[in-house]
Design a protein around this nucleic acid. Structure first.
Length: 579
RNA sequence: GCGCCCGUAGCUCAGAUGGACAGAGCAGGGGACUUCUAAUCCUCAGGUCGCAGGUUCGAUUCCUGCCGGGCGCGCCA
């Protein structure tokens, strides 16, 4: 049921070449519009908004400048539009075919198909870097995500943060940023105490403590450690070994979905190095802390928090916030210009506190940037599975990966906006994984590869693009594909700016739909001779688009799919409600 | 009580900076396999964009108030 693949994950987005793209048509049009506005004696319109209209009849590009200028110019929108149009038509623009005024005063610009042929050439010339921008050039970004406590295996919902974090990292890279993936290991503190007690209980065959972790994995862990190291370990040694094994398990899970972190940062190191104490010293030195009720507080309210926060508890230990401040200071000291953390929305209450603390410490405002995502709701047998590591009824990420391949899992997690609570129906995802959008997209890529193989078999080779006349690419299916490729750089820029990988997922899915439509309507190899080369190059441009988008999403772009006839009969899994 | 997120087609969800008759997938109806792999395509049907006001030439989008759901308001993480 998995795609036949070379098992090489597509080149990471990091490897994309910086390319200098030729001036894109939008920029050319915007400049021309601006010149027309000036020539018409109209006020400065600010940024010119050019968008691709929903309706094809509304042309290739549409702008509302006339509507926005109507009021400041004191003239009716359509009159403004007419003035702009006249100057635009007189500017002798390449590819320009028609300028229409529509509705309340939109300027609809229709271009000759030749502009799309330029898009094709631009895609091929740029290759994997086609969609890249430079909006984040020079930025060194630290992106912290997942960071689940090492008290047990990653749970299924964590998959959302893994897929999202990796995709966002790739997206930021497309905009020219240097991105560092980081995993914060909370290897100290209360949860580790609980883990130690729970593990020790399992290890010695005692009853679990009241609030201990009840997951079966701890029993397995205790057995494994006993087998390897005997039964005479003290609790701290046991914890040490246990955490090491749990972390190794987390790394394994991450490896299964192809995610690698640049740094695993240990919270314990912060304490051992004295970083926490140093941060406290700085804050005290600046007079930003005070004593109250036996604790030491930070004046976070002065920096926008709803109230002040405790840094040092009455028992002398430091709070999570205090340690976290030391951690974030360390990130800045490592030279990052911008910090981003991906958190579950259940932690949104801490955003203000951390940002206030970071401002108190470093003077930076709005840092770190926190991307909040709604939690995943797991459903099996029509019943929601309430996850609780403490209670032990967890569905692990490994469980999911045992049932579906990583591409399916990733694409599923990247389908929805982070603002939407994601419903992950295990029955649907597993039993119907064949219908998962990922295969729809991969199929498109595989079809292109298949055409290439067929062509090779028939002795058909692509001649250099410079020698190909693309003028014959006028079929609606063909221009549709090129229009979608034309906006791909915008899609990447938007998805990166909004930290919203799902925008790319939707683009590539729609792009696949357009390709399948083309595939059904337009033959490539048995087309009339004049069309074969242009279509081969069109297919190549599409391949570049699919490969690039899928690489950013962390999904394979296979050259071949298993034939549906060869697929094993899928049996609907038997579900046990509440299991 | 206060804060954040959500409420769009039967279901799951898209719909930046307000724009031209609201989109996709799945499910449902009807078609297309001597195929560059039908994991596909074509086509039909389906929506008071939670409700009520307000701002605007124009509101699914912005503002206010309700209603419904999730989460958070610790010297826990």
């Amino acid at each position: 049921m998995t795609p036949v693949t070379s098992d090489v994950r597509p080149a990471a987005a990091e490897s994309r070449q910086r390319v200098t793209r030729p001036p894109v048509i939008r920029d050319v049009l915007a400049a021309a519009l601006r010149a027309a506005v000036t020539a018409a004696g109209l006020p400065d319109p600010g940024p010119i908004v050019l968008e691709v209209p929903r309706q094809r009849e509304h042309g290739d590009w549409s702008t509302n400048v006339a509507l926005q200028l109507a009021k400041p110019a004191g003239r009716p929108p359509r009159a403004v539009a007419e003035a702009i149009r006249d100057f635009l038509l007189g500017a002798d623009l390449a590819h320009l075919s028609a300028v229409d005024i529509a509705g309340p005063g939109f300027l609809n610009i229709t271009l000759a198909p030749s502009w799309l042929h330029e898009v094709l050439r631009a895609v091929v010339a740029a290759g994997a870097g086609y969609g890249s921008g430079q909006a984040l050039a020079g930025q060194k970004i630290n992106l912290e995500f997942v960071s689940a406590n090492p008290t047990g295996p990653l749970h299924a919902g964590g998959g959302r943060w893994i897929a999202t974090g990796d995709a966002i990292a790739n997206l930021l890279v497309t905009q020219g940023a240097e991105v560092h993936r980081e995993y914060y290991l909370n290897d100290t503190g209360n949860q580790l105490v609980t883990l130690r007690e729970s593990l020790a209980a399992r290890y010695h065959g005692r009853d679990l403590p009241e609030d201990g972790y009840r997951g079966a994995y701890l029993g397995d862990l205790a057995v494994a450690i006993r087998e390897e190291h005997g039964g005479d370990l003290d609790d701290d040694e046991l914890l040490e070994l246990g955490v090491a094994r749990i972390v190794a398990g987390i790394r394994d899970d991450l490896a299964r979905v192809g995610v690698t972190f640049d740094t695993w940062f240990s919270e314990r190191v912060l304490h051992e190095r004295g970083d926490v104490a140093a941060v406290l010293a700085v804050l005290r030195d600046r007079g930003l802390t005070y004593e109250r009720d036996g604790a030491e507080w930070l004046r976070t309210e002065d920096f926008g928090d709803t109230r002040d926060r405790v840094l040092v508890r009455g028992d002398g230990t430091t709070t999570y916030l205090c340690n976290d401040l030391a951690y974030h200071r360390d990130k800045y000291e490592r030279g990052f210009t911008h910090l981003i953390n991906i958190w579950g929305s259940d932690h949104h209450g801490q955003v203000k506190s951390l940002q206030a603390g970071v401002e108190a410490l470093t003077g930076r405002t709005g840092e770190p940037e926190i991307i909040l995502g709604q939690l995943v709701k797991l459903i099996r047998g029509g019943v929601e599975i309430k996850l609780s590591k403490r209670a032990g009824n967890i569905v692990t990420l490994a469980d999911i990966l045992d049932e579906v391949d990583a591409d399916v899992a990733r694409m599923t997690f990247l389908l929805q906006s982070l603002d939407t609570k994601q419903t992950f129906d295990l029955d649907v995802v597993t039993a119907q994984s064949m219908e998962n959008p990922v295969y729809y997209v991969q199929m498109a890529h595989a079809r292109i590869a298949s055409i290439g193989r067929r062509a090779a078999g028939a002795g058909i080779v692509r001649v250099p693009l410079d020698d190909v006349d693309l003028a014959s690419l006028t079929h609606e299916r063909e221009t549709d594909l090129l229009r979608r490729l034309a906006v791909y750089p915008d899609v990447l820029a938007e998805a990166a700016a909004a930290r919203a990988p799902h925008k790319l997922t939707h683009w590539v899915h729609d792009f696949a739909g357009a390709f399948h439509g083309f595939y059904g309507a337009c033959r490539v190899l048995d087309a009339e001779p004049a069309l074969v080369q242009p279509r081969l190059w069109l297919a190549e441009a599409c391949r570049i688009g699919f490969a690039d988008a899928l690489a950013i999403l962390g999904v394979h772009a296979p050259d071949e799919m298993a034939r549906v006839d060869d697929l094993p009969e899928s049996e609907p899994p038997v579900s046990e409600p509440g299991a």
